[in-house]
């Protein structure tokens, strides 16, 4: 939630600054919203004790991709789909998301390194030289939020923020509306 709450608050603030309204977001018609909830529910089953953690993780990404494709025409969703693809690629290749030691330390989470090694779960593990596409792993340190995120995360959160801002709409400004052109006004400029 350390990443979700600030990004959502920032998106809502930008939406209001553009003249949008949160109520307008309620008019947004996302198809199959339940799939997003189902994707998260599957990942909750990844906690220790869950069965077939990797299968649940992969199935979760497939469900999330279907949700994104079903809503691809909605502003911001194409960015989310790119984020899903990037994260799924690196997770599928490495049977989990490789997390860079440097990113963990630089994000102020050095004390959690041992947790990552001992109990990273199915989704995360400490990156090693055997991991492929390591640059797509959690390599970006966000120190103020104590998070190490991936390029896919950046696309996903960026897309969600764009979706919220666009979904809040924008109040039309009267000054931007062109007055009707008068027939007699044309043709005088050339003299």
């Amino acid at each position: 939630m350390k990443l979700v709450l600030p990004s959502f608050l920032l998106a809502v603030a930008i939406g209001y600054a553009r003249g949008g309204r949160l109520a307008t977001l309620g008019q947004l018609r996302l198809r199959w919203q339940g799939l997003a909830i189902a994707g998260l529910a599957l990942q909750i089953l990844l906690w220790p004790g869950g069965m077939w953690p990797l299968i649940y993780l992969y199935a979760s990404f497939v469900i999330l991709a279907v949700f994104a494709i079903a809503n691809i025409r909605t502003t911001g969703v194409s960015l989310i789909l790119i984020g899903i693809a990037l994260n799924f690629a690196v997770i599928a290749l490495n049977q989990g998301m490789p997390v860079s030691r440097a990113a963990v330390v630089n994000s102020g989470q050095a004390s959690s390194l041992q947790d990552l090694v001992d109990d990273g779960g199915a989704k995360h593990h400490l990156a090693s030289s055997e991991d492929r596409l390591r640059f797509l792993g959690d390599v970006i340190a966000i120190r103020p939020l104590e998070q190490a995120v991936s390029l896919g995360d950046v696309f996903t959160y960026g897309g969600v923020m764009v979706l919220i801002v666009a979904g809040m709409g924008r109040r039309a400004r009267a000054s931007t509306v062109s007055p009707p052109t008068l027939v007699g006004d044309t043709g005088h400029a050339d003299g």
């Binding site: 959502f8 947004l28 994707g39 990113a103 998070q147 995120v149």
Partner: peptide
């Protein structure tokens, strides 16, 4: 904002939060 409108906004935000958390929570997801 009406209760109905509020519910729609809350459900849309919940779906987006679930999506964001599922795709990329980063280490560590708390």
């Amino acid at each position: 904002m009406s209760i109905r409108s509020l519910r729609r906004v809350a459900f849309a935000l919940a779906a987006l939060a679930a999506l964001a958390l599922s795709v990329g929570a980063g280490w560590r997801p708390n």
